[in-house]
Amino acid sequence: MKPSALLLLILFLFSCKKNEEKNDPKITNQKAQDTLKVQTENDDIEKLDTLKINYLEHKNLLNILTILPDSCMRSWEWKKTDRIEYVQKIKQNNYTLPSKGHFSSIELIQPNTIHIGVVDGSWILSIYKIKPNNYIVLTDDKVGDGNEFMAFEYLNGELIYIPFKDVFDQFFTTLLINENDKKCLEYFKDNYIGFEYDFIGTKKIHITNSLLEEAKSCFKGNTLNYEFNPEMKRFELINIENTKS
């Protein structure tokens, strides 16, 4: 067979094969299913892992996150260099993906608060505006054996450490009906780890301990309601009440 005839035969057979594939509904459907499967899997990944964050809306919060000392997250570890890179990606893309090496989930729930789920607890950063470029900054490193708080004043890019108790008016001191009652004071110390801190909106914090319900004769209530006073740069106690767990 001449080379030219052989070439024509090969082209003819190849053309027939392509036509068979084109006309075979099984092959066409399989390819469509495979494509749909990949698209669906990618959509699921995006829905599960992608957290949209508008950088401009949360700029102050995210920038403060990058300059916090590593000691604010002592129970885990998120180095400044990693945080800076993390925020830069949000700035570029307006979304983020979970960092499996450091935390299991992240959820930005308020303009001034970010929650991060870590191992057996959570980590919270909240900022409270005094004036432009000036905030009170609170961090809560919550693990199985309690909370570790830190407080700062942020002013024009710098953080100044503040003792946490100094940021709160009458911090826990008014819960006891009689501060000299040794039995009640001991009960209070034994259940100190049971306090839950709820950062609400841009001004309020509720501090609750449902265990205090068991010793109502010792306490005025089980919940302290605080509201931020920007002029005083501290949280003022609004009231004490009993709330059910």
Results as ranks from 00 to 15, higher is better:
Lys2Phe: 08
Lys2Cys: 06
Ser4Leu: 14
Ser4Gln: 14
Leu9Pro: 00
Leu9Asn: 10
Leu11Trp: 03
Asn19Phe: 11
Asp24Arg: 10
Thr28Lys: 11
Asn29Ala: 13
Gln30Ser: 12
Gln30Val: 01
Gln39Ile: 14
Glu41Lys: 14
Asp43Glu: 15
Asp44Gly: 09
Ile45Gln: 04
Lys47Gly: 10
Leu51Tyr: 12
Lys59Val: 05
Asn63Gly: 01
Asn63Met: 08
Pro69Met: 00
Tyr86Lys: 04
Val87Ala: 07
Lys89Arg: 09
Lys91Met: 08
Asn93Cys: 01
Thr96Arg: 01
Thr96Pro: 06
Leu97Glu: 03
Leu97Met: 11
Leu97Phe: 11
Pro98Glu: 04
Ser99Thr: 10
Ser99Asn: 14
Lys100Phe: 12
His102Phe: 11
Phe103Ile: 05
Phe103Trp: 15
Phe103Glu: 02
Ser105Ile: 04
Ile106Cys: 01
Ile106Pro: 07
Glu107Gly: 06
Leu108His: 05
Pro111Ile: 02
Val118Trp: 01
Val119Asn: 13
Asp120Leu: 09
Gly121Thr: 05
Ile127Ala: 00
Ile127Gly: 05
Tyr128Asp: 00
Lys129Gln: 11
Ile130Tyr: 01
Pro132Lys: 12
Ile136Val: 15
Asp141Glu: 03
Gly144Asp: 08
Gly146Met: 06
Gly146Ala: 04
Met150Glu: 02
Phe152Trp: 10
Phe152Tyr: 15
Glu158Ile: 06
Leu159Ile: 03
Phe168Asp: 05
Leu176Gly: 07
Leu176Ala: 10
Glu179Cys: 01
Lys182Trp: 00
Leu185Ser: 14
Asp190Gln: 14
Asn191Ser: 12
Ile193Asp: 10
Asp198Leu: 07
Phe199Ser: 03
Gly201Phe: 06
Gly201Gln: 13
Thr202Trp: 07
Lys203Thr: 12
Leu211Cys: 03
Leu211Tyr: 06
Ala215Leu: 06
Phe219Cys: 09
Leu224Gly: 00
Asn229Met: 02
Pro230Asn: 15
Glu231His: 09
Glu231Ile: 10
Lys233Ser: 06
Arg234Cys: 12
Phe235Met: 10
Phe235His: 09
Phe235Asp: 05
Glu236Ala: 07
Glu236Asn: 11
Thr243Met: 05
Lys244Val: 12
